[in-house]
Design a protein around this nucleic acid. Structure first.
Lengths: 224, 224
DNA sequence: CACACTTTGAGAACGCGTGCACAAGCTCGG
DNA sequence: CCGAGCTTGTGCACGCGTTCTCAAAGTGTG
């Protein structure tokens, strides 16, 4: 029984834990023993009050008058985020984006090992990307089960997204990162996060337009 | 003077407008004249009350007892989002991800034309990706100005992100989509949105872990 | 024209997240 | 051992966003 289950951690806090994790990793390399909420806030790009409140959800890991022990805090956050274990990941849809994700170095470092590449195109099946061979979508269920995949990355065209999501879930995947520009629903008990590049640009475009023809403030990020 | 400036549109609403836009585009192709908030909600993956409130911020474009005129609503949303004009875009950092983004078809359709590719690696400068040649980062300022770029995509390594962001801003870019896993600040009047793939996976990992060893509910998305 | 039915638009209540402000608790110097 | 100086942890107030609810406003039928 870990203390993961002690408190409910707000979704907004969960989304910031990786920022603290990254910041702590960077300071950890610089041989710093403790860090104040203020310094951590600066490194993570948030404000100090938020850092303290966020960390207080994990437990009282700080020492008043001193700060937080970098090593210990790093350990607690990585445990909370599940970065102490390895997560085998499957990527479905090996187009431009899927291929880029397959080659992306940033994943492995955090324990996310891309072990399976899946595509529907027969011309692609069997081809190697890095040191993995692309598997046919016909074998999705088998391969996902064999590798014990819990996290799937969806990088198919929009039209295929829902069907692939269903098949991933049927094969036991309970977390999906969806890059397909399509609404896509999953059953209760399965998490899905969406990343839509076109939507991000459209949001930027909105504020860009407003600034040009009126002068409203920008939505995110100020000078640090 | 458009009615863009009439009301302040909540950030959360702005982030959903692209969903409505996409949903309407898809129904528009099916020759449907009007659409109810309920149907639109279903297509966009949100609830009907939210759709109505969101659309009411744009103005009273619906007809009670009937619904919204698809064509008209589509026009209003695309005008609001600035999709009626073309946005020249620059991508800085032509690695795995940058290359994938350069080849991504989803942008052009919405008026985002990738016109400039920039990288620091001399071995890459001059190489063609699709029908664009990679330009040296030394020429960033000149090229960005020449193409009148307002929106920049940052796909460099973390270490270079802040410097490149600064240079983009100095060259007149006022909207940045940042894929680099680093905190990165921009002056007031410049928008920046972040997309961090590793962070998304870590968030999924958190809930994945909780489900496995306790049974909390999933954070996002339920069955539609 | 009246009435049943549909659907929007918005007022109001609620809940979540943020940020302020400060007490509690620790260290260190004298 | 005491007091000055930090820094955490958290209670509280506020604001934003979501959802409920229902009056207002349209359509269509007899």
């Amino acid at each position: 029984m870990t203390n993961s289950s002690r408190r409910r951690i707000p979704e907004a806090t969960v989304a910031r834990l990786p920022l603290y994790y990254r910041a702590l990793m960077e300071t950890g390399e610089r041989q710093v023993a403790t860090i104040s909420s203020e310094r951590l806030a600066e490194l993570a790009g948030v404000n100090a009050a938020k850092v303290r409140k966020d960390l207080s959800y994990l437990g009282s890991y700080g020492t008043r008058g001193v700060g937080y022990d970098v090593e210990y805090l790093l350990h607690e956050i990585s445990r909370e985020l599940g970065l102490t274990r390895d997560w085998p990941v499957a990527i479905v849809g090996i187009g431009n984006l899927g291929r880029a994700l397959a080659n992306y170095r940033g994943f492995g470092a955090r324990g996310f090992r891309v072990e399976v590449l899946i595509d529907a195109d027969p011309a692609l099946v069997g081809k190697r990307i890095g040191d993995l061979a692309v598997v046919s979508v016909d074998d999705l269920d088998r391969v996902v089960r064999e590798h014990n995949i819990a996290i799937g990355i969806l990088a198919t065209p929009a039209a295929a997204a829902q069907e692939v999501a269903d098949r991933l879930v049927a094969a036991g995947v309970t977390s999906i990162l969806n890059f397909a520009p399509a609404v896509c629903s999953v059953p209760e008990g399965v998490s899905m996060r969406k990343v839509d590049l076109a939507i991000e640009l459209q949001i930027l475009s909105f504020y860009q337009l407003r600034r040009g023809s009126g002068g409203a403030a920008s939505p995110r990020e100020r000078t640090g």
